[in-house]
Design a binder for these strands. Structure first.
Lengths: 201, 201
DNA sequence: CTCCTAGCGTGATGTACATCACGCCAAACT
DNA sequence: AGTTTGGCGTGATGTACATCACGCTAGGAG
């Protein structure tokens, strides 16, 4: 009993503080407001290899990553997997299109490491945004940054060779190279594993 | 004198109504609010081939397209041009990264047709958003849609052949094919003009 | 200890593109 | 009318990649 209290108490406190810090980078919240926000979320832990979203299924949640590493990917008709993004701490992620429109997922979201996320349902999300516009502001701001980052990536894909894109990735996310294997990096860069291997050796 | 009054009167009224309609698809505005919003913008007309943003220059405005067609593009180190997007009526466009951070443009924005835009400076934009959060909401919402669209394009670039991407483009923006020549379409699709020509013939 | 699998490198071959070069045509310019 | 220019198609050739096939190594599971 004591152990349970201690551990879960410590744990949620840390998680909550992290979440709040992330929010407060963009908006400010009173204690009451933060408690209200929190009441819309559930915290969940997922193990490496677990799926948060499966391609083809309905998408009822969007996720805020507290720790760990997720992969948002699409498997095409030829069974080739393409990685849209790696979602790390402080990322807000889902299959946005499916979540927004209520259609089925065209992407999968799964764990490359054990991962902790705050989850919110479409309905709670709607309620939260209606009650607290600044939370929607926070969310949209994040998405705006994502848009800018995505433009850069698109440009890289259009104008750079595989070797150049790899170099750019090294610069921008040096930590990624430690955390994910080269097969995944290749799927992100849009080249085959073999080609990436030849580039690096 | 009569002619001037008539023409310019008609013109701005039409433009303004268009602008307001676009806003009201996402937010609602009173007449007073709309007038206040308008006071932050200037309306400008540009001729085909004119530049609104030149790669390398500071970016002090963001633009709302009322009519016409713009191209947002990047010219790489090998003098090859890549098109990030064609901005049509109802699009909000700029070099977002440069506009947001105050750095110089890494992209150019120019007219493929005679074009009418509402312009807003960084400073007026800041003031407007501060005074009317729902305008920021409108803007960020637009950007969120843009983000979703961009994800789809990234996926197409990663997983589809040039021929497939051309077909998808035909589906999604049939009107574009009438309005822009094949050299530009090729630059958008990320293939050479010759390859695109072979695909279509 | 042995087997099995995941991760990685590497050779041989195939292919979807880019590049270069050219010619045709229609519209615009003088 | 003659010349120029922009848009487009097309052949020949080059190349950056994908694909297939294989072998090596290290860590985990029986």
């Amino acid at each position: 009993m004591f152990g349970k209290l201690l551990i879960s108490g410590l744990f949620t406190t840390t998680m909550q503080e992290k979440l709040r810090e992330h929010f407060e980078k963009i908006i400010s919240l009173t204690d009451e407001e933060f408690a209200f926000v929190l009441s819309h979320f559930t915290f969940r832990k997922f193990k490496k290899h677990q799926y948060l979203i499966q391609q083809g299924d309905p998408v009822n949640h969007t996720f805020f990553v507290v720790s760990g590493l997720l992969r948002l990917s699409h498997t095409d008709a030829n069974d080739k997997e393409h990685i849209l993004l790696f979602a790390m701490e402080d990322w807000w992620v889902s299959d946005d299109h499916a979540f927004l429109t209520g259609t089925n997922a065209t992407m999968s979201l799964d764990c490359l490491e054990d991962t902790g996320v705050f989850c919110i349902t479409r309905e709670d999300n709607r309620k939260l945004f209606a009650a607290m516009p600044k939370m929607e502001h926070f969310f949209l701001k994040k998405s705006h940054f994502g848009y800018i980052a995505l433009q850069r990536r698109l440009l890289a894909l259009l104008s750079s060779s595989a070797a150049e894109r790899y170099q750019q990735l090294l610069m921008q996310y040096p930590s990624l190279i430690q955390r994910v294997n080269k097969t995944l990096l290749a799927a992100y860069l849009g080249v085959s594993r073999e080609t990436l291997s030849r580039l690096t050796s």
